[in-house]
C-alpha cells in the first residue's frame, strides 16, 4: 500500500517545482499507477489547483494542461478533427470511462510507460512538452529523457497540417496494447511511432523516398519492421510484435492514403 505522509495542493508552479526537488516527494497525476506502488511518499504534490485541466485551442496549436484527463482528450472535437480521430482511437481502449476520467495526460507522458498509448500517439504529432524548468522540449526528446525532477506543465500540439492514423492490437479490448502504431505524415516526412514494443514508444522518421505516394505499403511496413526493436513479455513474443509492427504500419499507411503494390 502506498503511504503518503503529507499532501500539498501547490499554489504555484514554483512551489510545486521547489517541493519536487526532494527525492522522496512526488507529483501526483491521476494516481492510477502511483497508487499501486508500495513505497512511501513524503509529500504528494498536487497540481490540480493550477488551472492545468483545460485544453486551449488557437489557430496555431492545442495547448493541453498536464492535468487534463484522458477522457477530455478523447472527447475533444478539435483534437479529433485535427488528428482524424487518432486521438480518440488511441484512448478509448484504456480500461474504462471512469479510469480515463482520472488518468491525466501529464501523468501518462511523464511516466514514459512502455505500454502507453498516449505517448505513442503524441510522439506521432508535432508536439512539444512544456517543462517548468526545462522549457519547451520536443516530445521525441522528452520521451528519450529519463524522468527527472522537473514539472510537466502543458503539452503543445502544433496545428501542422498532417495525415495520421492510430491502430493497436490487444489481447482483450480494454487491455494494454500488445503493440500500438501511430503513422503520421507532415512536411513530406512519414513518421511511425511504435508503442508497447513492450519498451516505450519509439519514433521512426522514414526516408523521403518512402512515402505512401511513391512507395508500396509493403516497402514502408518492412522498413518499419526492420527498424523496430521488439521484446517479449507475458502478453506476447518479440516475433509476434515484430509481425504486428509490419501489419499495423501497413494498415495505418493505407488509412492515410497509401496504396498496395
Amino acid at each position: 500500500m502506498l503511504t503518503i505522509k503529507k499532501y500539498v495542493k501547490a499554489a504555484s508552479l514554483d512551489e510545486a517545482y521547489e517541493l519536487n526537488q526532494k527525492r522522496t516527494n512526488r507529483v501526483i497525476g491521476g494516481m492510477l499507477w502511483l497508487k499501486m506502488s508500495s513505497g512511501t511518499v513524503q509529500t504528494a504534490i498536487d497540481l490540480s489547483g493550477l488551472g492545468l485541466d483545460t485544453i486551449e485551442e488557437t489557430d496555431e496549436e492545442f495547448s493541453i494542461g498536464a492535468m487534463v484527463p484522458l477522457r477530455d482528450l478523447e472527447l475533444h472535437a478539435g483534437l479529433n478533427a485535427y488528428t482524424h480521430g487518432a486521438m480518440r482511437e488511441s484512448l478509448r481502449h484504456i480500461v474504462g470511462v471512469q479510469f480515463r476520467n482520472l488518468a491525466t495526460v501529464g501523468g501518462s507522458l511523464y511516466g514514459r510507460f512502455g505500454f502507453s498509448d498516449v505517448l505513442t500517439c503524441f510522439l506521432g504529432l508535432d508536439a512539444v512538452v512544456e517543462l517548468h524548468h526545462g522549457g519547451m522540449v520536443p516530445i521525441k526528446e522528452f520521451a528519450a529523457q529519463k524522468p527527472d525532477r522537473d514539472i510537466l506543465v502543458r503539452i503543445h500540439v502544433k496545428k501542422t497540417p498532417l495525415r495520421c492514423a492510430y491502430l493497436s492490437q490487444r489481447n482483450t479490448k480494454t487491455d494494454f496494447p500488445v503493440l500500438a502504431c501511430m503513422v503520421s505524415e507532415w512536411d513530406g516526412t512519414l513518421r511511425v511511432s511504435i508503442g508497447a514494443r513492450p519498451q516505450k514508444a519509439s519514433l521512426i522518421e522514414l526516408p523521403k523516398d518512402l512515402m505512401p505516394e511513391n512507395a508500396s505499403l509493403e516497402e514502408i511496413a518492412s522498413y518499419v519492421q526492420e527498424h523496430t526493436v521488439t521484446g517479449s513479455n507475458m502478453r506476447a513474443s518479440a516475433a509476434y510484435r515484430s509481425r504486428l509492427a509490419y501489419v499495423l504500419t501497413k494498415r495505418a499507411c493505407q488509412q492515410i492514403g497509401g496504396m498496395d503494390k
Binding site: Y7, M31, K35, A44, D46, V97, Q98, N101, L102
Partner: peptide, 18 residues
C-alpha cells in the same frame, strides 16, 4: 464507481483529500 462533481470515477484510485 462514484461521481465526483458529476463525473464517474474510480473511488479506489482517488485520494480522499482530492
Amino acid at each position: 464507481t462514484v461521481f465526483l462533481d458529476g463525473k464517474p470515477v474510480l473511488s479506489c484510485s482517488l485520494l480522499t483529500v482530492r
